[in-house]
Amino acid sequence: MPEPDVEAGEVKISARDVQVFYGDNHAIKDVTVDIPDKAVTAFIGPSGCGKSTFLRCLNRMNDTIDSARVEGDILIDGENIYDRGIDPVQLRAKVGMVFQKPNPFPKSVYENVAYGPRIHGLAANKAELDEIVEKSLRGGAIWDEVKDRLDAPGTGLSGGQQQRLCIARAIATEPEVLLMDEPCSALDPIATAQVEDLIERLRGNYSVVIVTHSMQQAARVSQRTAFFHLGDLVEYGATDDIFVNPGDERTEKYISGRIG
């Protein structure tokens, strides 16, 4: 197991010996990792290796899957999020998530973004809410496309627009950690560049974890990279090191396109 490296900033999330089971399927095996604050961490690995599963551990979304069982400790700001005293609802307000498949609510674009701020009471009045919505939509690089149709249903947008709407929705609650599961999988190069810009900006204040299948994207946006293979965390370290000088044969094969 590689030594935890905290050079990129303070440790925000620290996972110790995490195991995840779906029934009898051991999907995450013994993962120990320290995710820094104010930095972007990329999870890469072949399909089905457990990237999404591990990501969902970080805001306890696995609680909503009946068959899923999580063992080990995950600490955010030194606090174990699997403690009894922790309310997963509060945790998720702090640890936002963008899902692999875009899932806008069947409501208007505006209501989609206003959803989080409303339930958490982040806006005192309509004007403030309008402001939050606009800021988030700009952050999600979709403002220009939807500013004239804020009342149109979010489900009526194109796939890429929906994905950016979901990003805007996630950042509207101003989380401290943002988990993004393949946020650019349905985006064209222009929107991808905009989302990458956004990630770059978010890095100033948040800890961002991104799952991606694009090596280039991981290299471009992240400071640290974790490579998963069949539920194991094979290698974790500074992105430059991993891509230039992979320590494990499997990592090397994967990033050069020979397994996966």
């Binding site: 805001n59 979304m61 909503t64 609802v89 509060q90 945790l91 998720r92 307000a93 702090k94 936002g96 998530m97 899902f99 899932n103 806008p104 609510f105 069947p106 959803y115 989080g116 339930i119 958490h120 979901c166 929705r169 996630a170 609650t173």
Partner: peptide, 9 residues
């Protein structure tokens, strides 16, 4: 749809 809502806390 539910996940999206739970994910926002």
């Amino acid at each position: 749809m539910r996940d999206g809502s739970y994910g926002l806390g």
